[in-house]
Amino acid sequence: KSCSILVTDANFECNEENIMLQAMDNSHIALVSVEIGAPGFTSYRCDRTMPLGVDLTSLTKVLRCAKDENICTLKAADEADVLNLVYDAKSAFFSPFFFAFMWHGRDASSPFPPFFLLCSALLPLFIHLNISLSSQTPITSSWPETKYDTRVTLPSAEFTRIVRDLSQLGEHVRIEVSKEVVRISKLKAKSSAEDEDNDSIPTGVVIEMNQHVSLTFSLKYLVNFSKSGSLSGEVQLLMSNDVPLLVAYDFTQGYIRCYLAPKIGD
């Protein structure tokens, strides 16, 4: 769900050790990278390395059907063009539905694949969801390794609150990190009456730095990144001057890392 805000189509690269996703957003300003290790699943089996090209918009709609207590099983057969999701319903109050999402191939003239929704209230207590797999070129490039001058670790809820609040006031934000202070200042305020800087130094902030950095970013993207805040109690902001910001959420058996290109010049 976090990725679908940034990326509409992506390949899940599956191998024996993990499931990975790496994709740029449509405007090529942000990059999202996700890894979920095999131990993060109750059971995991991958007989053959394969990419699963998935329309994330459709997948998100399917995932909304799940409840917290549901156990979700994902299956893709060899040479199959369908990703099958099965939800085990544990709640006696769960209303069973059957959904079938089907499309064959991608029509370039169609921005969204046609799908058919079938519902029944009397089917057994599980859901079968089929999402067809699109044929995309697998992303084989390596993870972009970068050394950063600063790392700021803070509670993810604080980061979410900061960028959400500032996005109400402006379109861009300048993040400056010095030895003891992180200054997050809004830019291009929509209202001149709200033009003062907003320093946000919440508790639980750890600053590691080799060099002072000052970078400007689009708040819209930071707000989208912060949607991953529920995955981890902490978020790390890694920055160097004139290179993309890395917003990293690590969880027990994986991570979601979002890169954002800065604005240059003034």
């Binding site: 740029m24 090529h28 300003i29 990059l31 972009p144 993309p244 010049g265």
Partner: peptide, 14 residues
């Protein structure tokens, strides 16, 4: 006006 750089300019491998 600041200009927005694309992510691929920093990570050519992409």
């Amino acid at each position: 006006e600041a200009s927005q750089i694309e992510i691929g300019d920093y990570f050519p491998v992409l």
